[in-house]
């Protein structure tokens, strides 16, 4: 029972982690809560449904196209909407409202095209199941966990080991100074959005596969939980976001498994508030010095 809960928690936590990494990257460079992230998370599986289930494509090409399309959508949102708002030197809350607008358009666009009923997504990954003692790990769960680990490793390498990553981190610390040091700030931010929305797309598709279905109501709770994961781990920290995602995923699985599923969401939020009060920089975040 315990082992089974851990496996289930880890699976769902891994997907939160994946969305949270992208969210956290955007948040750290712009201090912007990107509400469209949740919409990207449901956008991708719908594309997969369209290409794979309806049009009969292979799963892998459908999946790749969906992730790519979502990534481009995210980059376009930044390039055509958010960059303009930034150039107005407006507060980030205006950008936030714009991302709300984008998410409204995406979600309702999906409803208009696909209808508001739940759509099923046939399981493409049929590799049986693994028995670990009395617990079962399905092929889907294995794929989700392995994929998440691989993608997050890649993202870590991008953020911490490449020139692009160091540009991102420098923008997060000081945008003006980065610009003066020759960093093309707007382009780097756009790329950050591309990566962020692509990782949300991967997570969303994997979760849809896991549950065998996709519907548009998922996006709010996902938005809120990725927020939570990112804060818990420490904004701007890739390993932090992973840790945060896994903890939130585990926590809700455990609360649902051992107590009541009614309060599974609430516990996560109480923990966020507690964390913000006692450890506002998260588990792995950096302390920002309050300089006079």
């Amino acid at each position: 029972m315990l082992l089974q809960q851990i496996i289930n928690g880890l699976t769902i936590g891994a997907t939160y982690a994946l969305v949270a990494v992208g969210f956290s990257m955007v948040y750290s460079v712009l201090e912007l809560a990107n509400f469209a992230n949740g919409a990207f998370y449901v956008f991708a599986p719908y594309i997969v449904v369209l290409l794979y289930a309806s049009m009969g494509w292979g799963f892998i090409p459908a999946f790749l196209i969906a992730v790519l399309a979502t990534g481009i959508l995210g980059a376009m949102m930044d390039r055509f909407i958010l960059t303009t708002i930034r150039n107005h030197k407006a507060q980030t809350s205006s950008s936030m409202v714009a991302t709300l607008g984008v998410s409204t358009v995406i979600i309702n666009g999906l409803i208009a095209v696909f209808g508001s009923a739940t759509r099923s997504l046939p399981n493409a990954v049929n590799i049986g199941r693994i028995y670990i003692g009395s617990a079962i790990m399905t092929g889907n769960q294995l794929v989700i966990i392995v994929m998440s680990v691989i993608i997050m490793a890649v993202l870590s390498i991008i953020v911490y080991k490449t020139k692009l990553g160091s540009a991102m981190r420098s923008i997060a610390q000081n945008q003006v100074a980065s610009r003066m040091m020759g960093v093309n700030v707007n382009r780097i931010i756009t790329v950050t959005f591309l990566i962020g929305s692509a990782s949300a797309a991967i997570a969303g598709t994997m979760v849809a596969m896991y549950y065998g279905s996709v519907d548009t109501t998922l996006y709010t709770s996902v938005s809120v939980k990725t927020f939570a994961s990112a804060i818990l781990g420490g904004i701007g920290s890739v390993p932090g976001a992973m840790l945060g995602g896994v903890i939130i995923g585990m926590l809700e699985t455990f609360v649902a498994g051992y107590w009541t599923s009614a309060y599974k969401d609430m516990i996560a939020f109480i923990i966020i508030i507690a964390f913000l009060i006692f450890k506002p920089n998260g588990l792995l975040g950096h302390r920002k010095l309050n300089k006079v």
Partner: peptide, 22 residues
């Protein structure tokens, strides 16, 4: 009908593009 929310979202975006400070 269905398009209502989309138009609403688009207007929100356009508004922020034209006058981000409200």
């Amino acid at each position: 009908l269905d398009v209502r929310q989309i138009v609403y979202g688009v207007l929100l975006i356009v508004m922020m593009l034209v006058r981000p400070q409200g």
